[in-house]
């Protein structure tokens, strides 16, 4: 599946109310490690239709970052039934992410 572009407006509908497990990548354009994280997230999205995968730009959607206590990027959240199952801080490998699904 394609990676979803997440915003404050669509976050609840696409992630919290999703009937699948969701992965959210909090990033910013100026963040070096985020650029390395991005293709890993793209690959997971492409290869795992059973997941909802989205990226959230913290510059444009600060409220969501604050709400989830994200204070370091890249941060990844794995969310199931609206609840956070796992948080990764810093660049994270595909295998480490998939282990937590």
């Amino acid at each position: 599946m394609e990676v979803l572009k997440l915003t404050t407006a669509n976050f609840e509908e696409t992630i919290l109310k999703a009937d699948k497990t969701a992965i959210v990548d909090f990033y910013a354009d100026w963040c070096g490690p985020c650029k390395m994280q991005s293709p890993i997230i793209d690959k997971i999205a492409k290869e795992h239709d059973e997941l909802v995968v989205g990226k959230l730009n913290v510059d444009d959607n600060g409220e969501i970052a604050v709400k989830y206590g994200v204070m370091s990027i890249p941060t990844l959240l794995i969310i199931k039934n609206g609840e956070i199952k796992k948080q990764f801080v810093g660049l994270t490998d595909e295998s480490d992410i998939l282990k937590e699904i």
Partner: peptide
């Protein structure tokens, strides 16, 4: 508190402060 107020990278995380 890593990632919850503790950072190892000023250039990455300064924005949040």
């Amino acid at each position: 508190f890593e990632g919850k107020g503790i950072s190892y990278c000023a250039i990455c995380d300064g924005f949040f402060y």
